[in-house]
Amino acid sequence: MGALLVLPLMYTFVWSFQRVEYGAPGQWIGFSNYSQVLRDPMFHTAVGFTVGFAIAHTAVVLVLGYGLALLLHRARRGRSVFLGILLVPYIIPAVISATAFSWLFDDSFGGLANQLVEKLTGEHVEWFTSTWPNRSLVLVEATWAAAPFVMLVLLGALKGVPDAQIEAAIVDGANWWQRQRHVVIPLLGPMFRFIALIAVMGGLGVFDALVPLSPNAQTVGTQSVSMYVYENAFARDQQNLGLGSAVNVLMLIVMCALISPFVRQVYREVKGT
């Protein structure tokens, strides 16, 4: 933990106050990196997209993963087969799965999903060059890749729900939705919070999926903060690790603000047990 987390974090914090180029020692420049980043409109766009994506991704993946877990929990036959099929997107590397997913909407590779959308709506959608279609594409792919993990965790949690409480709710006249709302979901609350914590952190760090799905991320407004760091610290001619470090420090503050409610609640639950 010290070598892989604490030490790099310390270097990141120090470099954020320096101009650091490859092969040269850092030069102390104070808050210039922070000032440059905060004045850059592209950074504000990247933060807005990343935070919005993380929130939307977390909500969608929780609902979809829970729905799939309920279906498999009630399945009497073929559960192992369906579980194996649904877990395929989770075990494939992110870049490969995102690339294969992009082919479904790219006419150069057949675009089967794109053809279906055109037949249903009668319109040709520019998935890779229009802002909201591209954002929707990234969200759908990220949900497709993350939902199997959520489904698997909640499926295991559903097996621990006491049958006696479900039967008592049925005797009291509760319908299916009332049983889910007042019995099952509260019992799975700690697991939902844990998954939400993981999903928010994954959404804030989205990068791999954007490479094949958003080739024009800067122009269409789908550039994430991780991609912004990559463009400034690694990809441009004037590579500046100090500027990228400043962005990482700022995003660390944003991440702590978003996940702190989940962390506090999980800590209370663990401490209570």
Rank of each mutant, 00 (worst) to 15 (best):
M1A: 15
L9K: 00
L9C: 13
Y11D: 12
T12G: 11
T12C: 10
Q18V: 01
V20N: 07
G26F: 00
G26E: 01
Q27N: 14
Q27G: 14
I29P: 01
S32D: 12
L38N: 09
D40T: 01
M42A: 15
T45V: 10
T45S: 14
T45R: 15
F49I: 04
V51I: 11
V51Q: 06
I55N: 02
A56N: 05
A59E: 06
L70I: 12
L70C: 14
R74H: 14
A75F: 10
R77A: 13
R77M: 09
G78F: 00
R79I: 03
S80R: 15
S80E: 08
F82H: 05
L83I: 02
L83R: 15
I85T: 10
L86Q: 03
P93S: 09
V95A: 13
F101C: 02
S108C: 04
F109G: 13
F109D: 08
A113Y: 06
L120W: 14
E123R: 14
H124Y: 06
V125P: 01
V125R: 01
F128I: 02
S130F: 05
N134L: 05
S136R: 06
V140H: 02
E141Q: 14
T143C: 04
T143W: 05
A145C: 10
P148W: 05
V150Q: 06
V150M: 03
I166N: 11
I166T: 09
E167N: 10
I170S: 15
G173M: 03
Q178C: 06
Q180R: 09
R181A: 12
H182V: 05
L187H: 13
G189I: 00
P190K: 02
F194V: 08
I195N: 08
L197M: 08
A199E: 13
V200C: 05
V200E: 07
M201K: 11
G203L: 07
L204Y: 04
G205E: 03
D208S: 11
D208V: 03
P212H: 07
S214D: 00
S214F: 02
N216V: 11
A217F: 09
A217W: 01
A217D: 07
T222Q: 10
S226D: 08
S226T: 13
M227A: 13
M227I: 06
E231I: 01
A233G: 12
Q238G: 13
A246I: 00
L252H: 09
L252N: 13
A257S: 11
L258C: 08
S260Q: 09
P261A: 00
V263G: 07
K271F: 12
